[in-house]
Design a protein around this nucleic acid. Structure first.
Lengths: 265, 265
DNA sequence: CAGTGGTCTAGACCACCAC
DNA sequence: TGGTGGTCTAGACCACTGC
């Protein structure tokens, strides 16, 4: 009887974790594996599909299959993050400190735009008191700043490898015409600028979900189409409870662990 | 040219989200879908595989394919959780409050045992100061309570549907012979009992990772073999920094979102 | 051009379930 | 026994890469 694709996936997983197929190295071609295991190519392909979704391997058409290199990265969402922010300001500080410990040079690219906010973002910014089921068709003529947001889209790299996307949204009536629209937000970063404007972030929430990567994310993060990403929706509110920032952070799930730390009471 | 499996998966996803295939209802058989889309059964099967991994459908051999029913559940890891704990005690209180809001009756089953702790748990309990790379082969003769743990394995249900597994580990030298070994830990739950013993939890950390479900989890949580679960490793420490509880919480990733809330400073 | 993976087909056998 | 999904095969065509 022929081997099943699960068995083959297990065997290949074993070879990867034991280093028989080294990180960054190549796997034999599907034809070669099919011959070795005496199964059809389709069966090998299905086994590799499982490993791709797990993020163990990376497949390039016309080239071949390689073992992924980056180790597990830790994202400290509370605790360490605050300490780092004090030093170098903003989430970027935390991100850099985190990866520097692992010996990676980090780099990030920021692009600032002004856009009409999505329904979800709008709801967080100002329509929290509106029932969920409300029709959103009303008032299509409103294009005022109340529905616009300054958007800071940041791409982050460890070495040359893209590892994270973070998109910050700021209400236009707060951020418009301020340094928040600059690519470099200066000492203390965006949170310090929000404080300067009288909207110092005081309360935070993060909502962690899992989803399949979008096409853009697949392309930028060099993922497989079936791969999963964490989406962290971080909301910062000032001391009056007004949402002053929504940050959508996207990370390949196979590569990151999220750590939260806090004290009782 | 025939339709690709991605296209078909997208079409079926659409039919599910629009309610054309109602929650709890049946999908046409693979043969029927193959005929409808004019593709081979294998192609339909591959499309369904994607939806299974996403948790949209549930497949039973010999029976058919049904649309999953439970909505997204929210697990409040900080904030609400503390309030709930004060009322009814322990993590169970938070869990029940959470689902009661959604109109579900909850039930949980607890099984208490005493076991030799895994390396990972041991490390958290007492070997935190030992370098990660240290050989663990030393001292194989030690079977004292320092390496044993009281284990509280809890299975949680929403209605009749199993939704979560939580396994709490407590150092034997603290928990041995105490009410922590009882199935019902009384008012305030396990945390209150730890406080009674002079080890009130003061610091918490949670480490969120994603992995494929184990066979046991697949069977208990009624998952598909390829499906993902969150594993939350929660560590509670007393005011001296000693780890007094490790809790491993497993949740189907398609069904839960994790929410963390905290204040600045 | 040859080599790689992406994907589809048509047919087949099996395990499991309800009847 | 007939219907369901699980899975494998052998062959095929395509797109993409690197030479």
């Amino acid at each position: 009887m022929p081997l099943g694709y699960r068995t083959i996936a297990g065997e290949l997983r074993e070879r990867i974790t034991t280093g028989q197929y080294a990180p960054g190295g190549r796997l034999p071609s599907e034809d070669a594996l099919a011959a070795e295991f005496k199964v059809s190519r389709q069966t090998v392909n299905k086994a590799l599909l499982a490993l791709r979704t797990e993020g163990l391997i990376r497949v390039e058409r016309g080239i071949g299959t390689t073992v992924r290199e980056l180790p597990m990265l830790t994202s400290r969402r509370i605790g360490r993050q605050r300490a780092a922010s004090r030093e170098s300001g903003s989430a970027r500080g935390a991100f850099q400190a985190e990866l520097a410990e692992l010996g990676y040079e980090t780099r990030s690219e920021v692009q600032v735009t002004k856009e009409r906010a999505s329904d979800r973002i709008m709801q967080i910014f100002g329509l929290d008191d509106v029932p969920e089921g409300r029709s959103r068709k009303a008032d299509p003529q409103r294009q005022d700043t109340g529905h616009m947001a300054v958007v800071r889209a940041r791409k982050m790299f460890a070495g040359e490898v893209p590892v994270q996307l973070a998109t910050g949204y700021y209400p236009a009536d707060i951020a418009d015409g301020t340094p928040i629209e600059d690519e470099d937000t200066g000492t203390g970063g965006t949170y310090s600028r929000l404080a300067d404007l009288g909207h110092a972030p005081a309360f935070f929430s993060e909502r962690v979900t899992l989803r399949v990567a979008s096409d853009d994310e697949v392309s930028f993060l060099r993922l497989d189409a079936e791969q999963r990403v964490y989406e962290v929706e971080r909301v910062a509110r000032d001391d009056r409870g007004r949402a002053v920032e929504v940050n959508l952070i996207v990370m390949p799930a196979h590569q990151w662990e999220l750590v939260y730390e806090w004290a009782a009471e």
